[in-house]
Structures are given as structure tokens and as C-alpha cells.
Amino acid sequence: MIRFWNKRLKTGTLTEAPEIDTELAALRKSLKDEVKKKFAGSLAIRMVDSGSCNACEAECNALSNPYYDLERLGIYFVASPRHADVMLLSGLMTFNMTPHVLDAYAQMPEPKWVITLGDCPAMLSPFEKNFAVNAPAQNHLPIAHHIPGCPPSPDEIIRGLLAFLKKI
């Protein structure tokens, strides 16, 4: 273990303070009251994949790596829709997943929001409408915000979430 602690001290903090951090600081200040009121200071997200290629999920996982460390912004992913404020919906809303997505949404406590992640749920990816695809998601759920990209990079997801917070 001593090797690990040596390595850790040498590596230091990797988390990037990208350009958005100044924007973030200002945004945080103006949103503080509202977030506190609506989300008790933290935003809980339930990620639901309704038929993606797994790239959107990989980028959401990347949000937890040391370069992005999303939780420092008070935004974190939860295991159950019953703990969530927001559903982050990726994928094409396949025929087989649609009832389960609607189930998960029904389980979320009010107030609740759905954010679509990536081009698929908005039916903007190269996949075409067929019998197995029920996207766009807006035909089935009220969509509060959309984060475009194929897939959106972790950076773009963070910006998208902040844009959503600004909007509500």
C-alpha cells in the first residue's frame, strides 16, 4: 500500500478546472437559492438507457473519473428512480424498453424532470424509425431539456446539466 500512497501524493489532484469553472462559479451563485429550494442543494439523477449503443453510458461513467468528478458540483447518479429528481434518458426508446422506461418514470417522486441525452432519444441519430423504435421520447414523456451529441462528451453533459438548472 505504501507504493499507492506515494503515487497518490505524487499525482496530486487531476480534476480539471475547465473554462466552464468561472461560468460555473457565477451560475452556482445565482442558482444557489433555487437549487437549494428545489433539490436541497444536490441534484439526484437516475440514468435510464432505453436502447443506446452504450456510448452515452460510457460518457456518464466518465463523469465520475478523476478528470471530471461530477459529484463536486452536487450532482450525482442514484440507483433507484425513487431517489431521483431527474431522469437522464438515452437511447431509441425501443418497443421492448418503452414500458420499463414509463414504469421508472412513474416511480419517481414529484417534482420530476426528464432530460434526454444524446441524439437517439430525440430521433436525430442515424438510426431510422422502424417497428422496434418508439423514439422520439417526447411522444411518450414530458421532456424538460435535451443534451445533444453522439455521444455528448462529459464536458458537454456538464454544460447541458447546468443549462437545465438555469432553465427551470
Partner: peptide, 29 residues
């Protein structure tokens, strides 16, 4: 098979060039 998008059917009738954008998005990994 919850994620079944019927990709096989979707690509029928396309040219090889047109099919590529879908093929590269079948499995992101």
C-alpha cells in the same frame, strides 16, 4: 433483447456507404 432496434431490418435497402453510420453505432464500445 430489451435494446432490440431491429438493425438488421433497418439496413436492408441501403447502400454499403449509407449503412456505415448505423453500423458504427451498433455497439459504442
Amino acid at each position: 433483447f430489451y435494446k432490440y432496434r431491429a438493425v438488421e431490418k433497418m439496413l436492408e435497402g441501403k447502400t454499403l456507404a449509407d449503412a456505415k453510420a448505423v453500423i458504427e453505432r451498433i455497439s459504442g464500445n
